[in-house]
C-alpha cells in the first residue's frame, strides 16, 4: 500500500511508530526547546508524506536545513526526497503571501505541508491575530489540496508545523494561545538530560521524549534517539504508569493568557 512498507526500514526504527508520531491527524503542532530535533522530525515528516502518497510534499522554512538528517532518505526511498518541494520565504509577510497563492502555484495536489520554524516567522509578525490568520490559512490550504487528492487517498493533505518553545512561552504566550486552538494534536519534545556516550566513543547519543496529545485518545510517548552520526531512531514507549520519571505532559504548557 504505502511506499514505506515496500522499503527496508532503518534498523531499530519502527516505521509504523514514526508514521503515527508524525502524521496522526490532519494537523500536528510539533513543540520543543532548542536542540530537541524539531527540524529533523519535520524533515522526516516531509519524507514520510512524500513516500506514502503519489502527491508531492511541501517543506517551508526560513532557510535551508544545514544538513539533511541522515538515514531518512534511505528509509523512505530515494525517490521520496525528489518529491518534496522546498521553499524558503524569508519573512512572515512573504510566507503569508506564499501560502495564500499556493493554489495558483500547484495545480497538482499536495499530500503534506510542513512548516518548520514558525517561531522565527513570529518575530516579524505584527500581532497574534496575524499569526492566527497564517495558521488558519495553512489549514484551509491543506483542506483545499485534500479536495484535489484522488478519492482513494482518504487521508487528505496533512499539515505539520514546528515551533521552538521552552516551558515558559513568555512574550510568545499570546501568540501561542492564538495559534494552538487550531491544533487538536500537539507533540511536545523533551530532550533527556542524560546523554549516552557511544561505546565507540565517537560522540554522544541524544535522547528525546516525544509526547503526543490529542483529544479523545490517551497521550502516547515515543523515544527518539539521535546517534552521533545524526541517524534517528524512533520507538514507542510503554503507556504512562509503566515508565518511571515520566513527567512530560501537556501540563507544562505555558500559562494561557
Amino acid at each position: 500500500m504505502s511506499a514505506l512498507q515496500q522499503q527496508q526500514p532503518v534498523p531499530g526504527a519502527d516505521p509504523a511508530s514514526l508514521l503515527l508520531l508524525l502524521l496522526p491527524r490532519p494537523a500536528l503542532l510539533l513543540l520543543g526547546p532548542a536542540g530537541s530535533g524539531r527540524s529533523a522530525l519535520s524533515f522526516r515528516a516531509a519524507l514520510l508524506g512524500a513516500a506514502s502518497s503519489r502527491a508531492r510534499a511541501l517543506f517551508l522554512a526560513p532557510r535551508p536545513l544545514e544538513r539533511l538528517p541522515a538515514g531518512g532518505a534511505d528509509a523512505a526511498g530515494a525517490g521520496a526526497i525528489q518529491r518534496i518541494h522546498f521553499l524558503y520565504p524569508p519573512s512572515f509577510r512573504e510566507l503569508l503571501q506564499l501560502v495564500a497563492s499556493l493554489h495558483e502555484t500547484f495545480s497538482c495536489s499536495l499530500s503534506l505541508v510542513v512548516l518548520d520554524g514558525l517561531e522565527e516567522y513570529l518575530g516579524s509578525c505584527s500581532s497574534p491575530a496575524m499569526a492566527a490568520q497564517l495558521v488558519a490559512l495553512l489549514l484551509d490550504t491543506a483542506n483545499h489540496f485534500s479536495q484535489k487528492l484522488p478519492v482513494e487517498s482518504a487521508a487528505g493533505c496533512k499539515l505539520v508545523v514546528s515551533m521552538k518553545l521552552s516551558g515558559e512561552a513568555g512574550e510568545q504566550a499570546e501568540y501561542f494561545s492564538a495559534i494552538e486552538r487550531y491544533f487538536p494534536a500537539q507533540c511536545w519534545l523533551h530532550p533527556s538530560t542524560e546523554e549516552i556516550a557511544d561505546s565507540g566513543s565517537q560522540g554522544i547519543t541524544k535522547l528525546i521524549r516525544a509526547r503526543l496529545s490529542q483529544p479523545g485518545t490517551k497521550d502516547q510517548e515515543w523515544l527518539v534517539r539521535f546517534d552521533p552520526q545524526g541517524d534517528m531512531r524512533i520507538s514507542l514507549l510503554p503507556c504512562e504508569g509503566e515508565v518511571d520519571g515520566c513527567t512530560a505532559s501537556r501540563s507544562n504548557r505555558p500559562p494561557e493568557t
Binding site: 492566527a132 489549514l139 492564538a178 487550531y182
Partner: peptide
C-alpha cells in the same frame, strides 16, 4: 475561510481569539 474557523473582523480577533 471556507474550511477553517477564521474571520478577518475585529470582533473575531478580540472576542474569539484573544
Amino acid at each position: 475561510y471556507a474550511s477553517c474557523h477564521f474571520c478577518s473582523c475585529p470582533a473575531f480577533m478580540f472576542s474569539v481569539l484573544r
